[in-house]
Simulated assay, not measured.
Amino acid sequence: MGYVVRDQWQQHYADGKGFRQLGERERALLAEHTPVPDGGGRALDVGCGAGGLAVYLASLGYAVDAVDFADSALARARDEHADAVGVRWICLDIERDDSAELHEDGYDLITMRLMYPFLRDRSRVLHGLGERLRPGGALVVITPTTEHTPEERRNIALDEDEIRLLTAGWKQAERLDADKLAALVLRGPCHAHTTAVEKRPTTGHALTGAVAVVTDEAGRVLPGRSTRGMWELPGGKTSGPTHTSGELPGEQGSVKFRACVEG
């Protein structure tokens, strides 16, 4: 079953449907491995849903920005956690919307629980979130894995190759078990101090080129390794008088339903 557009997610939350509740093992791992820095810390919960994780992080002492692209999810969060202190609810599509509402000074902790497999542009989103981490901060991805997911629902889980790709761009990557969910604690994005160097525009007679794009069975573009050992996306030159270069457009896949639904 796939949720293709935002309206369907809106309806999901409006119907009172939910997802696997935050477990005690997850709570313990977050408290142990991502404690609030001395003097207080700020957290970003991406894809917060009805707000259970965001409220727990606030109870640890974080000031939390909780974002979701479904208004109905945030309405439920505000209603179900009316007494919560330290949480700011923000309606935001992390892949498409202007992120100006996010805290300009960055975050000590960023969480992505049960939502990473549904991103259409995983590498770009993870890269952007890594740039928002404060020194010493951590990005925690909590996700189902194919090992513990029934075959008919494995499209909402990550396999070992996907997990290796997810963790490859970080100086520290720790994998923890959270009741058959993988909790990936990532620190030190390797791209944080790199600089992009733009080449001179290609001359007009050399604008046409070719590039091979490799995708997995779900249609996601698979990046490769550069000669410097860094992950890179496929790119090619675009022919025409008004273009000098550009990435090849990828086909947008539908957003799949989070089958961790209802515990």
Rank of each mutant, 00 (worst) to 15 (best):
G2H: 11
Y3F: 12
Q8Y: 01
H12A: 15
Y13K: 03
D15L: 03
K17M: 09
G18H: 13
R20S: 12
L22N: 06
E24Y: 12
E26N: 02
R27A: 08
L29I: 01
L29Y: 01
L30D: 03
E32Q: 11
P35Y: 03
V36P: 00
P37F: 02
D38R: 07
D38N: 09
R42W: 07
V46P: 00
G47N: 11
A50Y: 07
A50S: 14
G52C: 09
L57D: 02
G61I: 03
G61C: 04
Y62N: 03
F69T: 03
A70M: 00
A73K: 05
L74N: 05
D83P: 05
I90A: 00
C91Y: 11
D97Q: 05
D97F: 02
D98R: 10
D98Y: 02
L102E: 02
D105P: 09
G106T: 01
Y107A: 04
T111S: 00
M112I: 06
F118S: 10
F118K: 10
E131M: 10
R132A: 00
G136D: 09
L139G: 00
T143N: 08
T143Q: 06
T145Q: 03
T145I: 04
H148M: 04
T149I: 12
P150F: 03
P150D: 04
A157R: 01
E162L: 07
L166Q: 03
L166C: 02
L166I: 01
L166S: 04
G169D: 03
E174I: 15
R175I: 14
R175F: 11
L176F: 08
K180C: 13
L181S: 00
A182M: 07
A183G: 09
L184W: 01
L184G: 05
R187E: 04
G188E: 00
C190M: 14
C190H: 08
H191T: 12
H191L: 09
A192T: 10
T195L: 11
E198D: 11
K199S: 13
K199Y: 13
R200G: 08
T202S: 14
T208D: 12
T208A: 14
G209T: 08
D216M: 13
R225P: 14
S226L: 10
S226K: 09
E232G: 07
P234E: 01
K237V: 03
K237I: 06
T238F: 14
S239E: 12
P241M: 13
T244M: 14
G250R: 15
G250C: 12
G253W: 00
S254N: 11
A259D: 13
E262V: 10
